[in-house]
Design a protein around this nucleic acid. Structure first.
Lengths: 137, 137
DNA sequence: ATGGATTAATAACTATACTTACTAATTTTG
DNA sequence: CAAAATTAGTAAGTATAGTTATTAATCCAT
């Protein structure tokens, strides 16, 4: 069953991420990292923008950013252009953490598909990318 | 990022599943189906057995089976061999539903990776299976 | 056989992940 | 410009998905 296999892969992937974060003593989930990545790339992006970039719905992202704000990694500010929107950006603490964590996350990518040879990994990634659609960037 | 791609695949997969279920008017999640599948294959399996077969933790499975029981698809019974364990089995209603739903779930597998050609799908599945580990059954 | 370790299930808690409904603000249209 | 449609965010509700702790039952080693 494709769905079941994909769910297992996701399970393994989040588990590897959690282990690496625990090893470096940082309390950050995959989604929280993905959100910080989007915010780092587009400072002052609004929540809906973050949601769109990492393919989440607005309600979920609201909670994710709540937790990032509580930890002091991001700050929120009502946009002057559009008072419905909240502009999000990394705090100094958040930017520092992001710098620290980036190499760890890069390193951990190799461990997500441990059963595969490097060539197979590349094949898998290419197929996954195609299946998901461009998502290029 | 491998993790991100996998998360997106899982998202698409659960979405396809939900759409097909909605189309046939049945309220069943992927996990609930997976649990019923395990229970159908091993009647009187206990909850820990279900969890082990579909790679969940016991706490999550407890909730899944709660909901299946509420819908009247499974019944629970304290095991005579081991009074800690609850034997789970499909009710008549659950067995009927499972029969009905099985072809739908089989059909929907083809839609989970819509961007891929059949050959690529096979490649993807083979790589995913290898990455996850045997899981053979 | 009994005290210690293990195990099955649940409870409580945190964090996704989504839906629908709602409020407030903005944009589009007639 | 006013009404209608859309959009950003939140709230409430449901369903995973996991952790740790607890209870009850079983197993195991002395």
């Amino acid at each position: 069953m494709a769905g079941h296999l994909i769910r297992r892969l996701n399970q393994i992937s989040t588990h590897v991420f959690a282990q690496y974060m625990q090893a470096v003593g940082i309390d950050l989930t995959p989604v929280q990292f993905a959100a910080m990545d989007a915010i780092a790339a587009f400072p002052r992006i609004d929540q809906a923008g973050v949601a769109a970039r990492i393919a989440y719905d607005r309600a979920t992202i609201g909670g994710v950013i709540d937790r990032l704000e509580q930890k002091g990694y991001v700050s929120r500010q009502v946009s002057k252009q559009d008072r419905r929107a909240r502009e999000v950006r990394l705090t100094k603490k958040g930017a520092r953490l992001f710098e620290d964590i980036l190499p760890v996350v890069t390193e951990l990518q190799g461990e997500i598909l441990p059963g595969l040879e490097p060539t197979e990994r590349d094949q898998f990634m290419a197929l996954a990318r195609k299946a998901v659609g461009k998502m290029v960037e």
